[in-house]
């Protein structure tokens, strides 16, 4: 059996570590576990991991600091696991260089999907992109999108709410501007978020996004339909 990747799971709860290991092994991953900082550092020195799953609540130094330490030395993707709905934890976690965030208690399949998505994204990105972590805030045609807070502002600074699936799709677009993306690519890149992303076809989501983002005629065509199948995000995207 070929392994899908080698994961390092850092959590002080031994049972959770074991259960995650079993779960991921069943899905073809190789899993190492660490219960504290020393074990984690030892593992990181010894082998190369495809991804680290890091709990925020750890004895001694917390996961956020460990995340920053790892990021200082290596580009290995990190998924932070934090307490219920602590928005600030998520924002800080992403600022510390984590690639994604998941709240405890999580759906194991959700963790699996995110692990896959992050590894895929990391593999797809070029060397240069790996060095620079994706920014958290983007601007395009007057809109501002904050990926950490998952919030979108219009040009007059009004919060416009999108569904999870719409937000995920917009995230893919702003991180891949002016590039033709096929429906399959879009599906791939949005997977790993909530299950809803699978519910609606990409076409419906695109038309809904178009409607919500169209405030006036001048910025009408945000998402261009490319002949031959696919979409392209037309506006120039800036990172502040």
């Amino acid at each position: 059996m070929t392994t899908s990747g080698h994961l390092l799971v850092v959590d002080d709860d031994r049972e959770i570590c074991d259960l995650i290991r079993h779960f991921f092994e069943r899905h073809g991953y190789r899993v190492s576990v660490a219960h504290d900082e020393a074990q984690m550092q030892a593992h990181l020195r010894r082998s190369n991991f495809d991804l680290v799953v890091l709990d925020v609540m750890l004895p001694g130094r917390n996961g956020l600091e460990l995340c920053r330490d790892i990021r200082a030395k290596s580009q290995v993707p990190i998924i932070m696991v934090t307490a219920v709905g602590e928005t600030t934890d998520r924002i800080v976690g992403l600022e510390m260089g984590a690639d994604d965030y998941l709240a405890k208690p999580f759906e194991p399949r959700e963790l699996l999907a995110r692990v896959r998505a992050v590894i895929r994204r990391f593999a797809a990105a070029g060397e240069a992109e790996r060095q620079t972590r994706p920014a958290q805030t983007y601007k395009f045609s007057g809109w501002t999108i904050d990926l950490a807070q998952r919030r979108l502002w219009s040009d007059d600074n009004v919060v416009v709410t999108l569904t999870t699936a719409e937000f995920d799709l917009l995230t893919v677009f702003v991180t891949h501007p002016r590039r033709t993306l096929s429906r399959d690519q879009l599906l791939d890149l949005t997977q790993g978020r909530e299950a809803q992303a699978f519910d609606r076809s990409i076409d419906i989501l695109v038309s809904r996004l178009r409607r919500k983002l169209t405030q006036s005629a001048e910025n009408a065509n945000f998402i261009v339909t490319v002949r031959g199948g696919g979409y392209m995000f037309a506006p120039a995207v800036e990172t502040p």
């Binding site: 709860d13 079993h22 307490a83 405890k104």
Partner: peptide, 10 residues
């Protein structure tokens, strides 16, 4: 959250 996470994994 810890026991619930365990339950989910189990």
């Amino acid at each position: 959250r810890t026991p619930v996470t365990r339950l989910r994994l189990r």
